[in-house]
Design a binder for these strands. Structure first.
Ligand code: SF4
Ligand code: SF4
Lengths: 154, 154
DNA sequence: ATAAAGAGGACCAATCTAGTCTCGATTGCT
DNA sequence: AGCAATCGAGACTAGATTGGTCCTCTTTAT
């Protein structure tokens, strides 16, 4: 598990699609192109628009397009737009409080892990997701592996 | 979001606690020491025992203890024991299938991201969680940040 | 004016989660 | 042998979350 919600997943798929084709796309087109039901596409895009990940144009010949360049939008932006701040544990989230916070001694470490996950996802931009090869992503995975090996080597 | 479940969190807390004190601990003790309700502690430990993260000893003066050395158990072991394989998206999971898999063009990239997350979490051992300072964890976070910066620099 | 689009939000069914409880099987101790 | 401590398996519930649909209203190009 440790899964992003399905709607968030759709958000990435749609945003990535928008990254590859320019101009404003109405929901109907995006639904056809991504094979995701139109009402769902609409729901996702409304959330993305509120978070200013995409911009909308109403009326005839309107639709959605990215609010910034694909290389300036990270997957974190999309995830946070759809399911709130990244927080692997409850104590890391500002909104909620865990009743054990006061005397939990793994809390500080979770904060660090959360930062690491955030940084990793923030390093991945929509432009990276748009290339099927994912050349840049390979770098990232390798870095994570190195961190792992470095740790073991200590 | 992108949160581990609360039971999993407890699993880490309990396992980390076991990492710092040796001998077999009965549920009642662990409950008192971690301030987690006993039935819940029991539920978590049963799952961990099934996954062979901890071993159990029944009868009087029995209890639970780690099945391996703390430095040989990563947080991934605990997470997977409690909520199944790490799978940020549906398509990465072997069990379930996403209906878009055939023509989804971000799928391959999610697989890479998933690998990165897995590697990062696998690099963190219970022994790391047990030190409040988390000296080794700093390394990891730094690595992730570097990967990010490297990516931007490209 | 009209038709094409998005905005906002209500709504529902299905699933998942957290947590409790009961009963039965082991096992050390005396 | 008997007893009390302790784990094992799993049923069960209430509440939260998720995925998905639908309706009404506003905006805007032509
Ligand atoms: S304070 Fe401890 S128990 Fe509470 S959410 Fe954080 S890590 Fe988990
Ligand atoms: S195949 Fe595409 S839409 Fe389906 S789970 Fe994977 S990334 Fe998401």
């Amino acid at each position: 598990m440790l899964r992003i919600s399905k709607l968030t997943d759709y958000g990435i798929v749609i945003a990535t699609h928008l990254a590859s084709c320019g101009g404003p796309h109405p929901v109907s087109d995006l639904s056809a192109e991504t094979e995701i039901p139109a009402p769902t596409v609409a729901k996702v895009l409304k959330a993305l628009a509120r978070a200013e990940v995409v911009t909308s144009q109403r009326g005839a010949r309107g639709g959605y397009q990215l609010a910034h360049r694909p290389e300036d939008i990270s997957v974190v932006r999309v995830i946070e737009a759809l399911e709130g701040p990244i927080a692997v544990t409850e104590c890391v989230d500002d909104e909620s409080v865990c009743s054990h916070e006061a005397r939990c001694n793994v809390r500080a470490n979770w904060q660090r892990i959360n930062d690491a996950v955030y940084a990793a996802l923030d390093g991945i931009k929509l432009s990276d997701m748009a290339e099927p090869g994912g050349a840049r992503l390979v770098q990232l995975v390798r870095s994570a592996g190195e961190a792992n090996r470095a740790r073991i080597g200590v």
